[in-house]
Each structure stands twice: as C-alpha cells, then as structure tokens.
Amino acid sequence: MSARVAVLIFPGTNSEEETVRACHAAGLGAELVHWNADLDAVRAFDAYVLPGGFAYEDRVRAGAIAAHDRLMTAVREGAAAGKPVLGICNGAQILLESGLAPELDGRVRAQAGFARNAPLGKFRSTHVHVKLAVAPERCAITASLPGGTVLPCWASHAEGRLAADPTTIERLEREERVAFVYCDAAGNVTPAAVPNGSALGAAALTNARGNVLALMPHPERDAWTFMHHDASRDRARGDTAAMLSSSGGIALFAGLAAAVRR
C-alpha cells in the first residue's frame, strides 16, 4: 500500500490538481482534503502538502488566516510527530505564518515571513531554478537527493521575499534553515537569479527537525517536459512520450515519497 499524502485545500487554493498529479507520479497515494474534513481522518495521513493559491483570498496577509484554520491542527500535530510537511508558494506562506518553519528556539510562532517582492512590490511569474543549500540529510524531503541538487520551478507570487529582522536572518543561515536558494540554470547562486529580493536569496526554509519544507516557487509546475522552459521542450514537440516525460521538478516529490517511506 502506497503512503497516503493529504493535499490540503483551503478556500482559494488553486494548485491542488497538479500537486496531486506530481505526488502520484512519484508513487504517493495523494488525496485532496478539504478544509472542512474530519480532523481524525486528516490525522491518519502520513504526510501533508499545502499547495499554492490564495487561501482565504490572502485576507489580512498571505497565509495568515489559513495558518489558524482548524485543519492546521492536524498539520501541527503531524509535524510535531515527525511527519513530512511540504508547503509550496501559498502553502509556504502558510507554514511561515503558522510558525512551523523556521522554528528557531523551538518556538512555533511567526518568526519570518514572505513579504511583498522587491523592489517593485509586484506579482512575478517567471521560470527559476533553486539549489539545495544544505546537506541533503538536513531536511527529510531532500535527504534522498544529491548534494547541490538544482530544481527547475516556476515562481508565481507577489509576496515571496523572505523577510525578518537582521538577527533572525543571520540565524536562519547559521542554523541551516535555508534549504534552497535561487540560482541560475547551471547552479550558480547569483543576485540576478533571485526574482523577488528575498533575503539570503532564499527560496525555501525548513524547521529545526527538518521534516517541514516551505518552498516559494512551484516544482509541480515543471514536473513534465511540456511544462519545462528550455530547449528540451522544443526538441520534444511532436513526440507525445517525450513531452510527457518527467522534468526536474518531479525530483522533489520523489524526495517526499522517500521521506514518507523512511
């Protein structure tokens, strides 16, 4: 029996279908779980994925209302029990608002946030690459990936700039909470690769235990060649099998699958 992953839906979530497909492609038994689901049923899942979108229309702040949703009770309990939790884009914002990442000093409260993009404060949709910035085993979801793995993703957000006070930013780096940083296609970490002015060029944060990963860009939107953004897509045109072959983003879901089975 494959591991059961809950892909959580709040009012306004919009990336759940492609997230479920990416989980299935990685061999996970992913199911959509709505915000009004029975909590005991939600507690029975082996892992949780919070997909992208605009939960509760981003009222008050992106992720702020969903972070306090009753469904998050099961996610908090699961995270405390060591279950893998992956948040993508709005899901990552929810994880930071809930305090499940970065969890400095063991405190589950908001210590950082994804603020409006800099310098213009505007929504950006652009293809990006992110590079694993910690030892793979530091985070359960990346533990099966090679060191320095580069994933292709689509950034699609207005609030993706990691922000916190300078002391916290320094600690995030020193205490290995920054799991992925933006890079170019060759894996070079450069300021030009950062689409949103994020502190430390951070694209993802993890928690103290390493079982929670809050990733701003979308790997599920570059999971197959037809979604990819380089010459490989052009070469695959007219070849259905090639177009439907996996591209780099699926690696993160394979990592999630490995974490659930571990």
């Binding site: 008050v60 702040r61 306090h68 950082a112 946030g113 916190a164 916290t168």
Partner: peptide, 9 residues
C-alpha cells in the same frame, strides 16, 4: 495573534 507579523510588519 493575527493582525501583524512582526517579522516584516
């Protein structure tokens, strides 16, 4: 509790 995230507000 809700209205302000002191990390950036």
């Amino acid at each position: 509790t809700l209205l302000c995230n002191p990390a950036f507000q």
